[in-house]
Amino acid sequence: MGVMNITRFGHAAVLVDVAGTRILIDPGVFSVDETFDLTDLDAIVVTHQHPDHLDQDRAPALLERNPDAVLLCDPETAAVVSFGTWTENADGLETTVGAVTLRGVGARHAVILPSIPRIANVGVVLSAPGEPALFHPGDTYEYAPDGVDVLALPLSAPWAKSSETVDFVQRVSPAAMFPIHDCTIAEIAYGTYWGQVSGHGGVDDSRLLGQTEQASFELSHN
């Protein structure tokens, strides 16, 4: 049975250590400073171009510390970022980094307002033989891939409401989940949001991971 170590680094930033591979997802402006000091990364994944998922001021230094990391992002982000050499991700596209397969999921960001054009958003499923599979959706509940063991769950956003969050959890039906995308929640109200999804999502292993907190997931992916 494989072990996946996950460390949160603020808001949507997640470090995944699995199968001898280190992958960082969505280092944005709400991420703690330690995010951009990380080294020995094998891949950096960006789901979309919004600043809370990619901090274009601090990310260049992160890339300098990890010159051999594979850089993977949606095609619109690849077109606008002026640093690094990025590989375009897309729905169903698989990229191999070490023993880990990174599969693109989805195409578009959730609707914020009808008057705001939707940008690209490509989530990612990380999987390796005998290891748990993790899904980070970026900013959307639209896509619910099969075979997800661990869900990085966007807990609050201008595009989301709690009933949609719970429905998304139920459709993905992971074995375990933890919150991301939560810097929009006041501390006094946090328990309300997490209580709704942990109480009604149907996931027994719901872990309330804080900033820079690490957890190990020992789940077999079938």
Rank of each mutant, 00 (worst) to 15 (best):
F217A: 10
P51I: 08
F83S: 12
G92C: 05
V81E: 13
A78K: 15
A99I: 01
L153N: 08
P51H: 10
F9N: 04
H109D: 13
V81L: 11
N5L: 09
N89L: 15
V70R: 09
H50Y: 11
T47E: 07
D167V: 00
L62P: 11
D205W: 03
L24D: 05
D167A: 12
S162L: 15
L38D: 00
A59N: 10
R103P: 09
V3E: 14
W86P: 08
P60L: 06
D68Y: 02
L126D: 07
F9Q: 04
A107T: 14
D52V: 15
Q56W: 04
F135G: 05
H181M: 13
E142T: 08
D37V: 00
D57F: 11
V150G: 09
F30G: 13
V166N: 03
H50I: 10
T101D: 07
T140H: 05
H48S: 14
G147Q: 10
T39H: 04
D139T: 12
C73E: 07
H53Y: 10
V203N: 04
S156I: 03
G123V: 11
S115I: 15
D182S: 14
H50D: 14
A43R: 11
V166A: 03
F135M: 01
G98P: 11
Y190G: 08
E94G: 00
A19Q: 03
V3A: 14
V70S: 11
G201V: 01
S115Y: 14
R65W: 00
A12R: 13
H109I: 15
F168E: 08
V81R: 06
T85F: 02
S198Q: 05
G199F: 06
G104R: 07
A13I: 10
G138C: 11
E164F: 07
L54R: 03
T212H: 01
W194Q: 09
H136W: 02
L208Q: 13
E187H: 06
N66F: 04
P60G: 10
Y143W: 09
G98W: 08
L153R: 04
P117D: 06
D52P: 08
L153D: 02
C73Q: 06
A128D: 14
V70G: 05
A12T: 15
I23T: 11
L209W: 07
V80P: 10
S31K: 01
G84D: 13
D17R: 11
G199N: 02
P154L: 06
N222C: 11
F168N: 04
G202F: 02
R8H: 13
Y190E: 14
P27H: 05
D182E: 12
E213H: 02
L63F: 14
M177S: 04
A59S: 15
G210I: 05
T192M: 13
L72C: 12
G191C: 12
F83N: 13
L151K: 01
S220Y: 12
P154H: 07
